[in-house]
């Protein structure tokens, strides 16, 4: 009877506790990734004017094997958009956000289950689907925040670094950048949910990202390998040079839609399994 009475002694509770918990736990990490991403931009972009002007740089690139140039996407490096794409969105920034996305995706369910903490969370008044959805949403917000940061930093440097990138193209590319990372995170989330282990998430997330990059690089080598582009999320995002020619809205939407579907599968997979068994 006293149980019923105690219900009256309600105290204020945080809304969306599962979603919010991700940020109270990992805001330091998020800030760290943000600093890393901004540092990459500040490292590469301001030197573009001197690189473009230096004939020695072009001579150096001309000496590189053409296959390497194509692999690194350096063939368009003569324009501001091509330079920013090749160095930042397509290389260092991509690597950084891929690592972050894979780590977050793998830790959210697989890592949490493997450590034994998920068991206690699920013993409380939540459903497994709620846990999966809240954690996916938190990852999506973090990735979008980092993409927005990159958008802002590039915009800030656009004039001083003489990049001449159109704002609309930059926005579209930033959304694609976030989309391809969220796809990676969703695959990692699903891998973790299916296996109950962090390594399952890491392997699947990193696998998709690395293969996507490799298929794009191979496709760049010859027309007979162009079919590999179809299998490369990296190519779907950056193959049409969105920073110079504009991003396709359908492509952007597709990335986020596929990520949602993968997250839904992750939630269903988690719902079916024995946890920590």
């Amino acid at each position: 009877m006293s149980i019923v009475q105690d219900r009256a002694l309600n105290v204020r509770r945080a809304p969306l506790p599962l979603f919010g918990k991700v940020f109270t736990d990992s805001w330091r990490g998020l800030v760290g990734w943000g600093i890393g991403l901004a540092a990459a931009a500040f490292l590469y972009l301001p030197i573009y004017p001197s690189m473009r002007g230096a004939s020695g740089m072009q001579a150096l690139i001309d000496q590189l094997p053409p296959e390497l140039i194509k692999t690194l996407n350096y063939d368009q490096i003569g324009t501001g958009a091509g330079y920013a794409q090749a160095t930042l969105f397509g290389l260092l920034g991509f690597v950084l956000l891929t690592i972050a996305a894979t780590g977050w995706g793998a830790a959210a369910l697989g890592g949490d289950e493997e450590s034994g903490r998920l068991e206690l969370t699920l013993a409380h008044a939540v459903t497994r689907v709620q846990v999966a959805v809240a954690r996916f949403c938190a990852i999506a917000v973090k990735i979008l925040a980092l993409s927005a940061l990159l958008f802002a930093v590039v915009l800030l440097l656009n004039d001083s670094a003489e990049l001449q990138i159109e704002v609309g193209n930059l926005l579209g590319t930033s959304l694609l950048f976030g989309g391809v990372s969220l796809l990676t995170a969703s695959v990692a989330l699903l891998g973790g949910a299916l296996t109950g282990r962090r390594i399952g998430g890491i392997a699947s997330g990193a696998g998709v990202a690395v293969l996507g990059y490799v298929f794009n690089a191979l496709g760049n080598q010859s027309a007979s390998l162009h079919w590999l582009y179809n299998l490369s999320p990296y190519y779907w995002a950056f193959g049409d040079s969105p920073l110079s020619s504009g991003a396709n809205v359908t492509t952007i939407v597709t990335f986020y839609a596929i990520s949602l579907v993968l997250a839904a599968f992750a939630a269903l997979a988690l719902r079916q399994r024995d946890i920590g068994a």
């Binding site: 219900r7 002694l9 506790p17 109270t24 206690l120 969370t121 409380h124």
Partner: peptide, 29 residues
């Protein structure tokens, strides 16, 4: 529920951790 192999999130304080579970399963008097 108290699990047999109790694994708790380590970086936060006990008070914050309990507040989190109370947010999910409360109300706590």
């Amino acid at each position: 529920y108290l699990p047999g192999e109790l694994i708790l999130e380590g970086r936060t304080s006990g008070r914050r951790l309990l507040a989190h579970y109370a947010d999910i399963s409360g109300p706590v008097p």
